[in-house]
Design a protein around this nucleic acid. Sequence first.
DNA 1: TGGAAATGTCTAG
DNA 2: TAGACCTTTCCAC
Length: 345
Amino acid sequence: MPEGHTVHRIARQFARDFVGHRVAVSSPQGRFAQGAALLDGRELLTSAAVGKQLFLGFEGGHVLRVHLGLYGAWDFLGVVSPLVDGGGAVASLGAPRVRRSVRMGEGEREGDEGAEAEDFPPEPVGQVRVRLATEQTVADLRGPTACEVLDPAATAAALARLGPDPAVEDDVRARMADPHAVAAATGGAAHVEPGETDPAVADAVASGPGTAADVMVQRLTARGTAVGQLLMDQAVVAGIGNIYRAELLYRARLDPHTPGKRVPAETARALWDDWSVLLADGIATGVMLTREDLDEAGRAAALRDPAQRHWVYGRGGEPCRTCGTPVVVEEMAGRKLYWCPTCQR
DNA sequence: TGGAAATGTCTAG
DNA sequence: TAGACCTTTCCAC
């Protein structure tokens, strides 16, 4: 059940342990047999996340696009490198080592330590849609909403549907969105007409740094739709899910029902800036900790205890941490929305 | 053992 | 807006 930060961590894990390796690709469950056959034995050249989607670029111009949806997850088994500059549970383990499992997606957790070498590679457990394997490391994918092999043109089209993501450098995004560059980088042929590159990215790149924020502000303030819905719209801004949505709105003291058109540009910009901070923190720790009021001890406690991590998310009926008003939980576009009717006015 | 819920998205009506 | 889809986990019975 990932939001954007988790997918960025997954992309980094693949960059550490799979990029540069020839990868055995299989579908133990059988539902991805054709795609697996297409990728099997190819070298993985690139690993990138945009919003909640993962793009793995293989030699030959094939890109594996994965969206975990509500309950998809990757399990990493065998030798799993710590995310050294990422901090959090994985990085704290130090040097690469044999671990039974590091699960990413459905709430990360550490696996049991000390598996024997002869356990590798382990038998797939449950409904494993895809298994990627190097000599030392296995990644098992379960329950994704999307799992498909794309050519460079389809990759560009998938990227074009996504709004800006603060954790994606403009140049990285532009290279990924440029089908010719993707083709060159992955050794494949480009089959895309000029002009198919994501216009948002083209704007951002053409106008220089900082304009990804402008794209988000423009898209958020252009429509009469409730800001609570717009933040979940991946074409407006990529990577925000139900938890970050509720918490960002609370931190901005913004009523989720406010139409986008009535959100001042500076407020929209502040939402982008705050999202950038929360996302970077989430990528670093692997935990969605959205309370900025905690001291060091409180933060450490919240990292251990999920009940302490949020201002309003998951706290329907409980007193607001600021004013004591019961937190409201309601349905917005089919998802549960948590907010404080006193603070967010 | 069965049902509901979960950090999501798409399509039909 | 309702329903479908993907999978696992937890809780009530």
